[in-house]
Design a protein around this nucleic acid. Structure first.
Lengths: 345, 345
DNA sequence: TACTTGCACTTAAACGATTAAGCCTATATT
DNA sequence: AATATAGGCTTAATCGTTTAAGTGCAAGTA
């Protein structure tokens, strides 16, 4: 890159002073450093004329701060994370930070890699959407005293800052909502994952059945793996429909699962909601465009992203010590895919 | 950030040598710099033991290279750009670069801002999805000799590197396809924009009509502005349907427009494709989920992204001078939304 | 008069790396 | 024996900033 070239030294030379003075003035430290009025004005003017742009590398090298945040998400091409990324980016910028983003693909090796790269790049702090089996990484960052905030997911057994959803409650509401609407055989397709947020969604679902005196059937719950979503979702739906207590409503635990599931349901020629009612986590245009708009749990993405940045910046700038933990509520947006069940006589 | 702390100096001290030697060894310059075998081994070992991580800031300050690419896109929360971003990110990483992303929201002021920020951050080069009225910015970068590649859009009157779609041909194909399938009144909703890619899409559409001896009606073409898509798309569709030569097929020039248009078409209770056939640019899950899968022009995103990174890296590392310009072909994926027209007697 | 205080500015080290140039010593060449 | 060459290592400058510590000097105080 052809540099701005103009350095403090250039300004100092044309002004006939030392670089120290220039630095003081340009950093607004004229008062503390007792710089003369006239020369201050002069320096500022010269800086303008030469179109001086400070060299961040040098600044950072000196200060140890890069004003950069590393954001690790599962996959930027997933609309949920793309939105989060956008919000984090904007909010960080408002606070004078730049964001570098990396996608882990839910793979702990990749996120290790990203952490290493980001550390090498001397990010000031991290915002991380953890993948399964990455507890080690969280401990590593804690030990290294690297500021970070977990987003969307967290490990209840590790004391950290985090911002996530009250997933238990959200799933509980999804189940209760379907029950209220007259459905009694309700399935859930979730990820096969030990991640807390996923377990909470499952737990919420189960409790909603229990509290409404519905006996849960094992075939109703299908846990699919990231690597072969489409295949396993199909199998899951097939099983749920074939069992003697066939499912008449289905909850998708994530956006990706929903996309996969809805495609298959369409392919099967099933009608939503008459053949199968639907509630899904996540929100996206795809849900609005569906011939039968999909009921979903709206995640407060704006809040999630902004709060995560807020917590991190606070940590970075005020050296806040005690971990802050935030749980946010999802809002169920009821649409036609879960409308009152039509009773067939 | 609590630093890795370990610097060249630390290694030098424990090895009892100068930092120069350590630097030579750790950069694989032992041969050229005639470093002794034993001490080289020793240094490498100590570096390992101390878990030395080089300080990129220092490296960059010295070398003037940050191994960072600035990517400016319209909006990361748009799936097209999210995918592009993902591909660029991965490809850049493979080449040893980190990407910082900024969303311009099609607003030239914001992209100016991003360019300034990225320059301050000393990115080595840019990949830019230009917004309207940003020619000035392109000229600025050219004059500054800042390496950059335009992606998805370019300015035919400015000599630059770019990678984009053959938009004329793609739109021409969209039109021809609908005509082949029996539709004769075909509308297009595009952005109100002087940007070349958009003008090409319009031109392609018009030529497909002309070459098939279909007289174009002005109401068939609606150009909507970014700021009020939904509203203007509605108005456009209303007009197109109300005109005496009502439209029976519709082309959407972008993904965003398509989403907006399809929502309205659903709201009107129109049936696709019987009431209105559809072809759209862009691809997304939403199109698959539609009750009538949408015919779309598949953009070679993988190629677009990788090629953009490739061109840029080549420029950066081989100081390639002559601008390289790449036009790629879209592929029309025919689905039910443009199936053979049913003739009503 | 001698001493403090305040003001306006400079010096120089430091951040962590890279690298041209230089300094020895031992061996090879003439 | 004198000189060249090669090998192995160090010195010190440099990238662009920041900032603690210091240097003069003039005015104020005792």
């Amino acid at each position: 890159m052809s540099k701005g070239k103009v350095s403090l030294k250039d300004i100092a030379q044309t002004a006939g002073v030392s670089t120290a003075l220039v630095s003081y003035v340009l950093n607004g430290k004229e008062k503390e450093s007792r710089v003369g009025q006239e020369i201050a004005v002069r320096i500022r003017q010269i800086a303008n004329e030469l179109n001086y742009q400070p060299n961040y590398l040098a600044k950072s090298l000196r200060s140890g701060k890069t004003q950069t945040i590393g954001l690790i998400i599962a996959d930027i091409s997933n609309p949920f994370f793309a939105n989060i990324a956008r919000i984090v980016e904007d909010e960080a910028k408002r606070n004078g930070y730049t964001v570098i983003i990396g996608s882990s693909d839910e793979n702990p090796d990749k996120s290790w890699d990203l952490i290493k790269v980001f550390l090498t790049r001397q990010v000031d702090g991290f915002i991380i959407v953890s993948s399964e089996n990455s507890e080690e990484q969280v401990h590593f960052l804690k030990e290294r005293n690297a500021p970070f905030v977990l987003l969307d997911r967290h490990f209840p057994e590790i004391q950290t800052d985090f911002v996530s959803l009250n997933n238990y409650k959200a799933a509980y509401e999804a189940g209760s909502h379907l029950i209220e609407r007259g459905y009694t055989s309700i399935g859930l397709i979730a990820y096969k994952s030990r991640l807390f947020h996923m377990q909470e969604r499952i737990r919420g679902y189960l409790h909603s059945l229990r509290d409404n005196a519905i006996a849960f059937r094992p075939t109703w719950l299908k846990e699919v793996s990231f690597q072969s979503i489409d295949q396993e979702v199909k199998a899951g739906i097939d099983e749920m429909l074939a069992s003697e207590q066939a499912v008449e409503a289905l909850i998708f635990a994530t956006y990706r699962i929903a996309i996969s599931g809805l495609k298959y349901i369409n392919a099967l020629g099933l009608n939503v909601p008459d053949d199968l009612a639907i509630v899904s986590f996540g929100q996206a245009e795809a849900f609005d465009l569906h011939y039968c708009p999909i009921t979903y749990l709206e995640q407060p993405m704006e809040d999630l992203g902004k709060t995560a940045v807020g917590l991190l910046v606070n940590k970075l700038e005020n050296h806040q010590e005690e971990p802050k933990q935030v749980l946010m509520e999802a809002r169920l947006i009821a649409r036609d895919s879960s409308r009152l069940k039509v009773l067939v006589s």
